[in-house]
């Protein structure tokens, strides 16, 4: 019999619930969630950090769960799409995605929603972005900011325009104003 691959114990919380797992060290956080805990809401689109479908929140910060080993998350608190809301009790972002049809096939959607929730927090926290005119100032809660910060979540169905509107609604940004700001290529130096 071949030698068994190294396995390790790891404990972390997922959506508030403690999980104690014994895992092959190679298991990614993504595969731990899907294949070992049975939370299939987090998606595997590319498994290489190139699509964002696997986005989850770890200690409140969004990451690609495909590019992180489960054993590196000892003691962490993980929030997945299932932890944000349920069909009976949608998170405001989930409700806004339904209202604005911010998805089609639905496969990138959990990652988009986890990212969208985190992006609004990142803007509020003043984290700078590529589209800021002056990174020395606080970023604005605007559609161009949201679009740039959401760019790590690919949607091949092309629901971007609707996702931006869903996010704007949750953020309380008036859409009519921000559409004007979309023409920033040209205004921005």
């Amino acid at each position: 019999m071949a030698q068994q691959p190294p396995a390790m114990a790891v404990t972390f919380k997922v959506n508030g619930k403690a999980q104690a797992l014994m895992l092959d060290t190679r298991t990614t956080l993504l595969d731990a969630l899907r294949d070992h805990i049975g939370l299939m809401g987090t998606k595997k689109g590319c498994d290489h950090g190139q699509c964002g479908a696997c986005t989850v929140l770890v200690n409140g910060t969004r990451i690609n769960s495909c590019l992180s080993l489960a054993v590196m998350h000892e003691g962490d608190a993980v929030t997945t799409i299932e932890g944000l809301g349920t069909p009976e009790q949608l998170h405001p972002m989930q409700a806004a995605f339904v209202k604005h049809d911010g998805f089609q096939c639905g496969y990138c959607t959990p990652g988009q929603i986890c990212s969208a929730v985190a992006v609004l927090e990142e803007i509020r926290a003043g984290i700078p972005s590529h589209v800021q005119g002056d990174v020395g100032t606080a970023p604005e809660m605007s559609l161009p900011e949201m679009r740039e910060r959401m760019s790590g979540n690919i949607c091949r169905c092309g629901a971007y325009s609707n996702i931006a509107e869903a996010m704007a609604e949750v953020a309380g940004v008036r859409i009519a104003e921000t559409h004007g700001a979309q023409s920033d290529a040209g205004a921005e130096a």
Partner: peptide, 21 residues
């Protein structure tokens, strides 16, 4: 009309091929 499968998809409850139990 809002998508009738929208709540499933936005909460991660819609099962895709690899995910069926």
């Amino acid at each position: 009309v809002d998508r009738v499968d929208g709540k499933l998809k936005t909460t991660g409850q819609a099962p895709y091929a690899y995910e069926h139990g």
